[in-house]
């Protein structure tokens, strides 16, 4: 379990990093926290010719409030820093709850917020979280910056719209609407382990307790993190009754996810989990919204 030979670069600025990525093209690979890439390299499943290590690029690590009440998170901010940040806890408690389910603290101390998103593991929490929270992603390259919506960012397992010379630099989370409740539900075989199915949801209620918006993100049950569309179609403008939620949960489990069978669980079981967890997440989120 030693990696194949590779070149290693450790730029100290974004500019230097982008130069290097442009120079390397398809041979280059960004190293962030390394919690996924390094094991993959040690197994020789990943064999990048060159690594561009961003750990010395200090300007990529920050959490800044945005004027509208949201947050901007630098790509190299460690998961545990996001988890423990006061502003994140105030403005996005669901994000804190989500991060707490990423592996164990030691791993969150190394793993980075942007790294997990750019890695696009279909079983990872953060891609689903940014779909749920409708984030905007700042992508940099030598030729400038572009902004990509989270919903446009992921194109398949471990695949994103990032070009080889580009890097994900910042994630901007728009503010949560008032009277929004959220819930995180997962079943994993071990604490800190991969989910067999997981659901994160937000429900925003209006003054008469009708649903303004219901968002349901799923992960570990398809080729990438998913944002289900049925919940909002059915529930928007409605009182979220148990029957309506059950209908939504059943529909999502049947039509809006694509879990497979593996050694840990059958497709049937994991669709059942989606059904149960979507139901539980929506009921919980509604209750939280009413608080």
């Amino acid at each position: 379990m030693k990696p194949a030979p590779f070149d290693y670069y450790a730029p100290t600025s974004v500019e230097e990093a982008l130069d290097k990525l442009t120079e390397l093209g398809y041979s280059g690979k960004v190293l962030a926290g390394g919690q996924s890439l390094i094991p993959a390299m040690n197994f020789r499943m990943a064999r990048p010719t060159a690594l561009v290590d961003l750990n010395k690029v200090k300007e990529l690590s920050y959490i800044k409030p945005t004027a509208d009440g949201g947050l901007a998170i630098g790509t190299m901010t460690r998961d545990s820093v996001v988890e423990d940040d006061i502003l994140v806890n105030e403005r996005f408690p669901i994000l804190v709850n989500t991060i707490k389910h990423i592996a164990h603290k030691q791993i969150r101390n190394r793993g980075t917020f942007g790294g997990a998103i750019a890695h696009a593991d279909p079983a990872a929490q953060l891609p689903a979280a940014i779909l749920l929270l409708d984030a905007n992603l700042k992508v940099l390259s030598k030729s400038g910056e572009r902004w990509v919506k989270a919903t446009d960012f992921f194109i398949g397992p471990f695949m994103t719209v990032l070009e080889p010379e580009e890097m994900l630099a910042e994630v901007v989370l728009p503010p949560m609407a008032p009277r929004t409740g959220a819930s995180y539900q997962q079943v994993s075989r071990q604490k800190g382990g991969y989910a067999q199915a997981a659901v994160i949801s937000t429900v925003t209620l209006d003054g008469s307790d009708r649903v303004k918006e219901a968002r349901v993100a799923l992960f570990s049950v398809g080729e990438s993190a998913l944002l289900a569309s049925k919940p909002n179609q059915v529930l928007a403008g409605q009182v979220p009754t148990a029957e309506a939620i059950e209908e939504v949960a059943a529909y999502v489990a049947k039509n809006e996810c694509d879990p497979g069978t593996d050694i840990h669980g059958t497709e049937e079981y994991r669709r059942n989990l989606v059904h149960v967890l979507v139901r539980r997440a929506l009921i919980d989120a509604v209750q939280q919204a009413k608080k």
Binding site: F43, H104, R189, Q190, K191, G192, G193, Y194, I263, H264
Partner: peptide, 16 residues
């Protein structure tokens, strides 16, 4: 052997 790492071979941890 499809369980040739601790990713697939689940070893119970203290937290379990």
């Amino acid at each position: 052997l499809v369980t040739a790492s601790f990713m697939d071979y689940l070893f119970p941890q203290a937290t379990d």
